[in-house]
Each structure stands twice: as C-alpha cells, then as structure tokens.
Amino acid sequence: MNLIWSSLVAFGRFWYRFIVGDDWTVAVAVVAGLLVTAFLNARAIAAWWLVPILVVVMVTVSLGRSSRPTHVVREIKEANKQ
C-alpha cells in the first residue's frame, strides 16, 4: 500500500514538474485567465485580449521575481568566466 502511494506521489510529482515547472503562479494565472475569459464570453463580452495580456504580465512578473539576482546574474557571470 505504501509502495503504491509513493509511486502515485512520484508519478504526480513528475507530471507537475513536467507541465507546471518552477513557477506555479504562472499556471494558476493562465487557468484563472481562461476561466474569466469563459465567464465574459458567456455574457457576450469580447474577451480575446485577456489571456495574451495576462501572459505578457505574468512572464514579466515571474522573470522579475525569480531570475534576478539569482539565475540570470549567475549564468552571465559563469559565461564571462569561460
């Protein structure tokens, strides 16, 4: 039973990392954006612009929050050492 449970957890964790990756807020924002788009569309309100704007905002916020000063600066410094 324990082995089955740990296998299921490992399987779920693999798919989570595979699809969602290191920033879950982007995935949550995308799903929320699609739900709001569906809600507006059901009320005959044009909502095609919502997800593209949300994508641009979320990528900017995600990169600004997570990559500086860790990933990018570290990668650039390592590249300059070579």
Binding site: V30, V55, E75, I76, A79
Partner: peptide, 21 residues
C-alpha cells in the same frame, strides 16, 4: 492550456538563457 503553461516554461528559460549566453 497545457501547451500554454508548458510553452511558458520554455519561454522563460529561453529568455533567461539567451540573456545570459
């Protein structure tokens, strides 16, 4: 939706890595 979430991972990694290398 899956491609969007998955593609955004590559998009962010691509921006970070091209900025660095």
């Amino acid at each position: 939706a899956l491609l969007l979430v998955f593609g955004l991972q590559w998009f962010r990694k691509g921006v970070t890595r091209v900025a660095a290398h």
